[in-house]
Simulated assay, not measured.
Amino acid sequence: MPNLQDQLTAQLLQTKSLPVSPIWLNNFLSTISAAQRNTPIPALTQTALFRLLNSDFRESLTSRSTTILPVEISDTNVQERRLTGTIPVQVLDIEDIGTSAWSQIEAIERVERGEAVRGREIVRTVNVGDDDQDERPAANANASNGPHRVILQDAKGTRIIGIEMKKITGLAIGKMAIGAKLLLRGVIVARGIILLTPESVTVLGGKVEAMDQAWRAGRKERLRQKITET
């Protein structure tokens, strides 16, 4: 009869392709109550998955040779190759390369000025007496149309750039946090860059809070630097 840790390890690998670190899983189990341990395995697996998606994969996953990026993955001399298997990665950076940096800065500054926000949509408030007193949609600083450029990192810490070749649902600024987790399946790597398509990417979600806060705090300055460098 497999113990609880073995059952969770098998469930997370079979259902989500996540090779969980025994140390991380043991620490997870030490934080849950006796009552939670007696919940059905599918429910306990979901709790563990939530924690995993909000962890740093370098600490929570094992670095199996079949589930990490090849060491030479960023070699620009390799014209094209397809990676086999399923590789879990986390997002370290996301950039909307389909929208100008100035437009993105302006959208951020509209939010900083305190313009009205309804859900994820920024709206301009209209003064009484204007002919048209309806609220009009303004630019949305919390979302992006793409295509997107991302920096991805595997469980061993290897990084690679990815470019969105076709629209991937959930991959957008405002929808995806830094530290969000993806599964790469059979992706093509061309000149050291992963070509991301809906067929090769599964968005699992999640985030790493400290990474996400630091990224948001520095985003406007990075956009300004991009402008000065061009």
Score class of each variant (00 low, 15 high):
residue 41 I to L: 15
residue 42 P to F: 08
residue 44 L to P: 03
residue 46 Q to H: 09
residue 47 T to E: 13
residue 47 T to D: 09
residue 49 L to F: 12
residue 49 L to H: 12
residue 53 L to G: 01
residue 54 N to R: 14
residue 54 N to W: 08
residue 55 S to P: 04
residue 56 D to G: 04
residue 56 D to P: 05
residue 57 F to A: 09
residue 58 R to P: 02
residue 58 R to H: 06
residue 59 E to V: 06
residue 61 L to K: 02
residue 61 L to T: 03
residue 64 R to C: 02
residue 64 R to G: 14
residue 65 S to A: 15
residue 66 T to V: 08
residue 67 T to E: 05
residue 67 T to Y: 01
residue 67 T to D: 13
residue 68 I to S: 05
residue 68 I to K: 04
residue 71 V to A: 14
residue 71 V to Q: 13
residue 73 I to V: 15
residue 76 T to W: 10
residue 78 V to I: 15
residue 78 V to P: 00
residue 78 V to H: 08
residue 80 E to R: 15
residue 81 R to P: 00
residue 82 R to L: 06
residue 82 R to F: 08
residue 84 T to Q: 14
residue 84 T to C: 06
residue 85 G to A: 08
residue 85 G to F: 12
residue 86 T to D: 11
residue 87 I to V: 14
residue 90 Q to L: 05
residue 91 V to Y: 09
residue 91 V to D: 05
residue 92 L to Y: 03
residue 93 D to E: 15
residue 93 D to R: 15
residue 94 I to W: 04
residue 95 E to P: 01
residue 96 D to T: 05
residue 98 G to S: 07
residue 99 T to N: 01
residue 101 A to I: 01
residue 103 S to E: 11
residue 103 S to M: 09
residue 104 Q to R: 13
residue 105 I to S: 01
residue 107 A to R: 11
residue 107 A to P: 02
residue 108 I to P: 00
residue 110 R to G: 07
residue 115 E to F: 13
residue 115 E to H: 10
residue 116 A to F: 12
residue 116 A to L: 14
